[in-house]
Computed example of a mutant assay.
Amino acid sequence: MTERKQGRRSAQDAEKTKCDIMCVAAELFCELGYERVSLRNISEKAGVSHSLIRHHFGSKDKIWYAISDGLHEYMEKYMGTIIEHMPKSANANEKLYFFVVHLLAHMLIAKQPIQLIADAVRQEDALFDYFIDRSGELQKIVFAIADEYNEKHPETPVKIWEIKWQMIMFAHGAASMSPFLKQTWSDETTDYDQCLLKHWDMFNQMMICRFGITESQQVKPASVADLIYDVPCEFKSE
Rank of each mutant, 00 (worst) to 15 (best):
F143I: 02
L227E: 06
H56M: 10
P221Y: 12
H50S: 10
L196R: 07
I117F: 13
S216Q: 13
D129P: 08
E44F: 09
I228H: 07
A222N: 09
C19H: 15
I82C: 04
Y192M: 14
A174P: 01
N41G: 08
H106S: 02
P113C: 05
E35P: 00
A92H: 08
M167F: 02
K62H: 11
G33C: 11
I117Y: 08
S216V: 12
K198S: 04
L32Y: 10
D133K: 12
Q115D: 06
S49W: 14
S186T: 10
E35N: 05
N91W: 09
F98H: 11
A146V: 09
Y97V: 11
Q12C: 08
Q115A: 09
M207Y: 09
Q115G: 05
K5C: 01
L96Q: 02
S59Q: 10
S176N: 12
A146N: 09
A14N: 05
T214D: 11
Q12H: 10
A66G: 09
Y229H: 15
E44Q: 11
D187I: 14
L39P: 06
K164D: 12
Q123R: 13
A118V: 02
Y34G: 04
S38P: 07
H72R: 04
S51W: 15
Q139D: 15
E188M: 15
C30Q: 13
D226F: 01
G136H: 15
E94R: 12
I42C: 03
E76V: 04
V219G: 03
W64T: 00
P157E: 01
W200N: 00
S59A: 10
I208T: 12
V101T: 03
V231M: 06
R36H: 04
D201S: 08
P157A: 08
Q115V: 02
D193G: 03
E155A: 08
W185F: 12
D187A: 06
I228G: 02
F203G: 01
G136T: 11
Q205D: 08
S49H: 13
Q6L: 07
I163K: 15
M86P: 06
I163N: 02
G7A: 09
E35A: 04
L28P: 05
A222S: 15
A110P: 00
L108G: 06
R36K: 07
H50A: 13
Y74S: 07
S10C: 06
K164W: 09
V37S: 05
K77Q: 14
K16Q: 13
I42T: 05
G47I: 04
A144R: 15
C19M: 12
V37Y: 01
R4L: 13
F57L: 15
I132H: 14
M79L: 09
K220Y: 11
M202Y: 12
L96C: 04
G58Q: 15
I63G: 05
L103E: 00
I114M: 06
I208D: 05
Q112A: 08
E3Q: 08
P113D: 07
K45S: 11
Y65M: 02
W165A: 15
R40L: 09
